[in-house]
């Protein structure tokens, strides 16, 4: 079931190429579009399974990375919205 607060799940066709220093490139073979993401975003991407809750992901980020900014939650929401708008993630129906 979809709730307003539910998180999307990753598009399984998108390739996540982890490169240097924890950065990665997300590549959608259908559209040919790619974009680079930082280590925090990589961690978020790996947790977008449609099950893990936002709070749990945020908690994990705070415990895994030093210097997590205060506005991490709004960055998180922006990143996830961006993924959905690009077709890199979608909602389960």
């Amino acid at each position: 079931m979809m709730h307003e607060c539910s998180l999307p799940t990753i598009n399984p066709q998108v390739v996540c190429r982890e490169e240097f220093d924890g950065w990665a490139i997300l590549f959608d073979p259908d559209s040919g579009k790619a974009f680079g993401i930082n280590p925090v975003a990589v961690r978020i991407w790996k947790n977008l399974d449609g099950k893990t809750k936002k709070e749990d992901i945020l908690q994990e980020l705070k415990s895994s990375f030093s210097e997590v900014p205060e506005n991490i939650e709004s960055d998180f929401v922006d990143f996830v919205r961006d993924l959905v708008e690009k077709g890199f993630a979608g909602y389960e129906v």
Binding site: T9, P12, G87, G90, E92, V93
Partner: peptide
């Protein structure tokens, strides 16, 4: 099975998983 709805420029695409 479950379905994922993806936003595409030409409309929504459904993936059956």
């Amino acid at each position: 099975v479950k379905a994922i709805a993806l936003q595409r420029p030409e409309g929504v695409e459904l993936l059956l998983m």
